[in-house]
Amino acid sequence: MDFDQPPVVRVTAEPDRLDDLAADDWPMTIPAVAQLVRDGLDLPKGVTFLVGENGSGKSTLVEAVAVAYGLSPEGGTTQGRHTTRATESPLHAALRLQRGLAAGRWGFFLRAETMHGWYTYLEQNPRGPGAPADSRFHEMSHGESFLDVLRTRFDSPGFYCLDEPEAALSFSSTLGLIAVLDRVVGEGGQVLCATHSPVLAAMPGATILEVGDWGLRRTTWEELELVQHWRRYLDDPRRYLRHVLD
Rank of each mutant, 00 (worst) to 15 (best):
T48P: 00
L95T: 00
A202R: 14
R231Y: 09
R10N: 10
G158N: 06
L61V: 08
L216F: 07
A23W: 10
Y240F: 14
H138V: 04
Y69Q: 06
R38L: 11
Q190H: 08
L216I: 06
V199F: 07
Y233H: 11
Q98N: 04
D134C: 07
W221I: 07
H138D: 09
Q35G: 09
T77K: 00
G117F: 03
A22T: 06
D155V: 12
W118N: 03
G143S: 07
H196N: 10
A66Y: 00
H196Q: 12
G117C: 08
A179F: 02
G100N: 01
A112P: 02
F3H: 15
A13G: 06
K58C: 03
G100Q: 01
T207Y: 06
R232T: 14
P157S: 11
Q228V: 12
R127I: 02
S59V: 03
L95W: 00
F3P: 10
F49I: 01
F171S: 13
S170I: 04
F49D: 00
R136A: 12
A131M: 13
R81E: 10
L181S: 04
V51S: 03
T207C: 12
G76Q: 00
T12E: 14
V244W: 09
L209W: 00
P157A: 15
T60V: 15
V8S: 02
I178Q: 15
L245I: 15
F159W: 07
L150V: 01
Y160M: 02
F154L: 11
V184Y: 01
G104I: 03
G55E: 05
E53T: 10
S72P: 10
F3V: 15
H243S: 09
H116S: 12
E144V: 08
A112L: 06
S89E: 01
Y119T: 05
R85F: 11
W26Q: 11
Q124C: 11
P129F: 02
V244E: 09
V8W: 04
L175G: 12
S173N: 14
L216P: 05
L61T: 04
Q228N: 15
T195H: 05
F159V: 06
E223R: 14
L122V: 08
S197R: 01
W230V: 13
V244H: 09
T48D: 00
R183N: 10
